[in-house]
Design a protein around this nucleic acid. Sequence first.
DNA 1: GTCTATATGTTGATAGAC
DNA 2: GTCTATCAACATATAGAC
Lengths: 198, 198
Amino acid sequence: MAENSGNGSRHNYDQESILNIAVDVFNKHGYEATSMGMLAEALGITKSAIYHHVPSKEYLLQLALDRALNRLEAILDDPLASTGPAIDKLRFVLRSATGVLTDQVSFITLLLRVRGNSDMEREALERRRAFNRTISDLVIQAQQDGAIRPDIDSRTTARLLFGMIGSVVDWYRPDGPVDAQKVADDVVAVAFGGVRSE
Amino acid sequence: MAENSGNGSRHNYDQESILNIAVDVFNKHGYEATSMGMLAEALGITKSAIYHHVPSKEYLLQLALDRALNRLEAILDDPLASTGPAIDKLRFVLRSATGVLTDQVSFITLLLRVRGNSDMEREALERRRAFNRTISDLVIQAQQDGAIRPDIDSRTTARLLFGMIGSVVDWYRPDGPVDAQKVADDVVAVAFGGVRSE
DNA sequence: GTCTATATGTTGATAGAC
DNA sequence: GTCTATCAACATATAGAC
């Protein structure tokens, strides 16, 4: 009742709802290839109306990248990320990262595609690198403990793990046939044990 | 002597040399975010001069995607891609794909980032999907043979494999510290056996 | 909160001189 | 083969009415 003021307007956007649709449109065509006109069309309002809610196109990207990075960084705050053997911490972080990814596909997708075309994008890239560095360190530790295969350079191992997890955004959909829990199980299983049967 | 005609011009571009530099610039900023002005700057000539060699920006993308796809599709022409047990064919194709990737990083990188923003891009995506489908079929076969773990859906397995291999473009550099052969070895080793020590 | 109209810059591409 | 000059289209963003 408080909303819509009794008139016939079909839209009632706020920053949050615009952000969510914007991120989807950005992902569909790529951020740079998405014009404010295309975004307006997806929202069913005009370009000008968007600027009532957000100051700029880049601000939408900023909000999205912040959210994605905050979620990933929160994983490292969990005690399980810094308790016990490195291999267990690594398993926890990989599983959690996959969970964040399936829970926030759109936001993480956008983050993973950032190229560093502005200061803001470069800052996001730096935060992402810092997160990756933490995981790389766990791989190094786990390898020193003898839990990770010694025949492959730890940076290569870490990068292959990032790559496999990150690639999930290319096919996982919340409403798809594969359950998010199962995805996390599968990623950890393949990462640790490979695809061959025992 | 035949070239440069005795004048002081420092450039002698043809379509091939322009393409190679263009692909690098496209990858650095993203295709859409790269303007012909930026490309001209990287080449050290003006925008107009580029159009003497190529008819359009999109034509450069077309050339690049064609080359990437031709190289990948050529893998499937090798007898080893269709001889013997599915698991052996799969190993061969994964290793070869990694080889093509390291041999043609720039071109494959561009291919993997295409979003389908034009008819041309959508055709490239379709060829890429056809290639992936062939590999997925090998995974299905190998799983039926009992060589691939039965607890994970074969499509998921295939996708995780694509993801891991494709992610190599994000860090492999021809002049980097890791040898291309070693990369292919590592990818196959991790894909088949995982990152844990035996 | 959304609209129409518009300001201002940048884009991909062309014309024509040298 | 490269240049200067220029175009039409489209970009992001703003002003002000309702």
